[in-house]
Write a protein that binds this DNA or RNA. Structure first.
Lengths: 168, 168
DNA sequence: TGACGATGGTTTCGATTGCAACTAAACAGG
DNA sequence: CCTGTTTAGTTGCAATCGAAACCATCGTCA
């Protein structure tokens, strides 16, 4: 066997790329399925999607916040936040209060109706997550927690570096 | 404290829903970041997106397959597969060969050019996944593996049940 | 004060998505 | 055979998304 042919060999069999074992793929499939299962809880009941759900939960958690704050905390693009808030505002689930000290931003918070929905959904969502976690061996749960944190941190790091390189 | 007020209490503080600790949310964020980081490897270089990437990898792995087969193996909607294949076909990375025994379907496979790209990308992708995994404590990796499998299984189960109920 | 860059948020626009309707071919079962 | 049903794959359409442009306001510095 020459060097040439060794280089051209498709791949070492033991290193073959199998999609179903490939971490990024598995994460994506898992996250989508979980997301879809969860959204059954609120989608039909209240006709809202994931972005609206996140806004609702964030405001439920913090009480009052700017759109920027919501975006930062829920990892959503500002246009997504803007549109989700607009929808919730139309439905009278969220109110906008001007910030006298800075008229560019506005403070958002749940209306009583929004709070009602939040109070109804939050325990159901927690229960859902709990049920989901119960399918994972108790001994593995902490590891999953750590792993998700590490993977999230590492990949956002990679993206940042690549972005700063590309943006030169 | 009456029963009434206990029922109306927003939530027990210890059970409060915190988005940043909520498993479905964390999975989604993690998967998106990882996916985005990975796509840097192939997106710019070859101007393809996730669906095309998955078709490429699936065909690289199995050699020859129908669109249905690809969809099943890569968890993609048939329209996504159809469009991804159409794009790759236009780029001469994939060929379609009629199945004499059943003219509805067609066998798809990589062209030599497609195989070249696969052979270039696969090791880089594997390396990426490896690097990513290295950020996770070695002791936690097997647990992550099991947890992802369980969560995937459980949530697709939930969705299936809900779907069959709704589809009555 | 007044000009300029930065910032919060909205809007416009092109691209991607998934559902539903469709086409064409296979496979009943009489 | 014909007829109705199922299946592989494509296409039309409406909804969603994110990048970039945009608008209004703020902070800075001369």
């Amino acid at each position: 066997m020459t060097n040439e042919s060794a280089q051209k060999a498709p791949e070492r069999p033991e290193a073959a790329l199998k999609l179903e074992e490939f971490l990024p793929y598995r994460l994506n499939v898992c996250a989508n399925l979980v997301s879809q299962a969860l959204s059954r809880i609120y989608a039909d009941r209240y006709k809202i999607g994931v972005p609206e759900w996140r806004v609702l939960v964030t405001l439920g958690q913090f009480g009052m916040m700017t759109a920027k704050g919501i975006g930062g905390h829920s990892c959503m693009h500002k246009t997504k936040v803007s549109r989700a808030v607009a929808l919730l505002e139309r439905r009278k689930l969220v109110v906008r209060r001007a910030n006298r000290a800075d008229l560019r931003e506005a403070f958002l918070s749940l209306t009583p109706a929004g709070r009602d929905i939040y109070n109804e959904l939050a325990p159901i969502a927690l229960d859902f997550a709990q049920k989901l976690l119960e399918s994972v061996d108790a001994a593995d749960r902490a590891a999953l927690d750590r792993a998700l944190s590490k993977l999230t941190e590492r990949s956002s790091q990679i993206t940042d570096i690549a972005n700063s390189r590309g943006g030169r």
